Amino acid sequence: MTGSQPKADLHRYLQTAREALLWKLDGLSEYDVRRPLTPTGTNLLGLVKHVASTELEYFGQVFGRPSDQPLPWFADDAEPNADMWATAGESRAEIIELYHRAWAHADATIDALALDATGQVPWWPADRREVTLHQILVHMIAETYRHAGHADIVRELIDGAVGLRKGNDNMAPGDQAWWDGYRSRLERVAQEAAQR
């Protein structure tokens, strides 16, 4: 082992989070990737659209490297939360392609700049607006993993698929009967605790 390379380490974590989020779409119908499964409308394709758009802004505009990708859902006159769902006219393929373009644009910024390169986040409060590439990498890793966690739960609600990525579910070993028993046990514990 040759030691840590901080930028490469951060970039690897970002890429792993990206792939985990995108994997949650695999094998699902158009309805299921768009279906809102929480009271606030959280849905898989919307999570991908949001994170793709966010990457384009943070690794683009913040460092004076804007992409040529229009993001009409971020316009001043866009409806609230327009970046958190895909319209019927926006295909899954288009949203995935948007995310891949965001990766390429972000990766070019990451490759071109040093970790201490500075930028400005115009939508943040003035006292926190000046940032470094290091800060934005950490921010986007946290943002992407946060939304990948949302996607984990939404996907499990859709069809029971769980885990980090294909071939590595990162879950405790057990068949369906074991998981059913485990969940029942947790329900009993919750009910017992509620009686105290």
Rank of each mutant, 00 (worst) to 15 (best):
K24S: 11
A17Y: 04
A82N: 09
L37S: 09
V33P: 06
E97D: 15
E57D: 02
R65Y: 02
L28Y: 11
P66T: 13
S91E: 00
G46K: 03
S67C: 08
S91M: 07
E57G: 05
G89S: 07
S91G: 11
F59R: 05
A78P: 11
L56Q: 08
Q15H: 15
E19F: 15
W73C: 02
R92V: 15
I96S: 05
A52H: 06
F63K: 02
G89Q: 10
A20P: 06
A88Y: 13
K24N: 03
H11Y: 15
T16C: 02
A75K: 07
F63G: 00
Y31H: 15
S53R: 05
H50D: 03
E94D: 14
L56Y: 10
L22K: 07
P80M: 07
P80V: 08
A78S: 15
R35G: 00
Q61M: 02
T42L: 02
Q69F: 15
I95M: 03
G41K: 09
T54V: 08
R12Y: 13
R92D: 00
E57L: 10
R65Q: 05
Q69A: 06
Q15E: 14
E79W: 12
L44I: 06
R34I: 14
Q69I: 14
D77W: 12
R18H: 14
Q15G: 12
E94K: 06
R34K: 14
G27F: 12
Y58K: 04
A82W: 12
S91H: 12
E55A: 00
L25Y: 09
D76S: 09
S53M: 03
M84C: 05
L37P: 11
E94G: 03
G64D: 03
V51N: 00
L45D: 01
V62D: 00
L37H: 11
P72T: 05
L45C: 02
H11R: 14
G89M: 02
P72W: 07
L56G: 02
P66A: 02
S53D: 03
S91D: 08
H50W: 08
L10R: 07
P70G: 03
L45W: 05
G41F: 13
K24A: 04
A88L: 14
Y31C: 10
T87G: 14
A93C: 04
D32L: 01
R34D: 08
Q61K: 05
L71P: 03
L21P: 08
D32I: 04
N43Y: 13
T40M: 05
I96N: 00
A52D: 05
T42D: 05
G46I: 02
Q61N: 05
P80H: 10
A82K: 09
G60I: 02
T40W: 12
W73F: 07
T87I: 04
G46W: 03
G64I: 04
P70L: 04
R12K: 14
N43P: 06
K24F: 11
Q69R: 15
A52G: 09
A20R: 11
L10D: 12
Y13W: 13
S91N: 03
